[in-house]
């Protein structure tokens, strides 16, 4: 299939093409994402870290929720053991996997609707227990797979198919929720900062406990084309963000590092994304190790 006329896979190929699932399965790189979407590059960054860190596929299963990013299994590493789960239930399934096989460290791909909407309860309790896993929240502030409805993280005043009179609800913040619930490593970054995303991913791989990494990704088709890029800043004249490049500019303009955010007032931070590492607490006790102690006590007999 490699000389498929539709998408000729010309040589030399992308350096990580051979280690991608689609490369192995179809001989050419099939990415079912819209032009300008951030998930394609997240799949590549996952494959890069998986390849460079030489992760053992048996110890790092990939649990993917339901959303646009569910199609990311075409792009992730070919050896990774990937499974698609139900909408919002990925954290619960990962809990079961981790407790039944404590050597494993599940990596969960979840979206803003998937994790803060329908799966909120499982997300909170996953962080409360501080289970050893990595939870990615892809925040494109829209329900992309079902056609652009408003998500719990949609910005104030944004247009979407279910908020024709602009979004009026206050938005929920995944990082604040994770901090309050007790996750031990919480960070937020964007797709426009790919190196920091890989740095956080590698740090989370070594961290014992729940690592929550929120990733701001653009959704051009349903968010960008429907909104002006003065969403975050008041008063400026905005224009439609109808290409990936414009959305990347908007993301870079709207993301403020945590150190700089300390000196900014509430109004300035309105509709802005604060990026950086919010909490890194390696000393917090990890859930499966605590349960191991109970097992040792129980197995010693009465």
């Amino acid at each position: 299939m490699s000389d498929d006329v539709r998408y000729p896979s010309e040589k030399p190929e992308h350096p990580y093409f051979d280690s991608s699932f689609s490369g192995m399965l179809l001989g050419t790189l099939v990415s079912r994402f819209c032009g300008g979407c951030g998930y394609g590059s997240i799949g590549q960054l996952y494959t890069r870290v998986f390849e460079d860190e030489k992760l053992d596929p048996k110890l790092y299963p990939l649990v993917i929720g339901i959303g646009c990013y569910s199609q990311i299994f075409f792009l992730v590493h070919k050896n990774a053991q990937k499974m698609l789960t139900l909408h919002g239930r990925a954290p619960a399934i990962a809990t079961g996997m981790k407790m039944a096989n404590p050597k494993m460290k599940p990596i969960i791909f979840s979206g803003d609707g998937d994790c803060l909407g329908i799966g909120g309860n499982h997300f909170i309790h996953l962080c409360r227990r501080n289970l050893d896993c990595i939870l990615f929240i892809f925040n494109n502030s829209i329900y992309g797979m079902t056609g652009g409805q408003a998500a719990p993280t949609t910005l104030y005043g944004a247009m979407s198919t279910t908020t024709p009179y602009k979004m009026f609800e206050p938005r929920s913040d995944g990082v604040e929720l994770a901090l309050a619930a007790g996750a031990s490593y919480v960070a937020r970054t964007t797709v426009a900062h790919p190196r920091t995303l890989m740095k956080y991913f590698k740090k989370a791989l070594k961290h014992k406990g729940t690592s929550v990494i929120e990733v701001i990704t653009p959704c051009v088709t349903y968010f960008g084309r429907k909104n002006l890029d003065n969403l975050g800043s008041k008063g400026e004249k905005g224009e439609i963000m109808d290409t990936g490049g414009k959305m990347f500019e908007w993301i870079k303009k709207n993301s403020i590092h945590i150190n700089q955010a300390k000196f900014m007032s509430k109004e300035e931070l309105f509709n802005k994304y604060i990026i950086g590492e919010f909490r890194y607490n390696p000393s917090k006790s990890e859930y499966s190790e605590e349960y191991k102690k109970i097992q040792n006590i129980a197995m010693k007999g009465d």
Binding site: H14, S20, L29, S31, G38, A192, F248
Partner: peptide, 10 residues
């Protein structure tokens, strides 16, 4: 950076 950010690995 362009290689990392390209959604279609092009």
């Amino acid at each position: 950076r362009c290689e990392y950010a390209c959604p279609i690995w092009a």
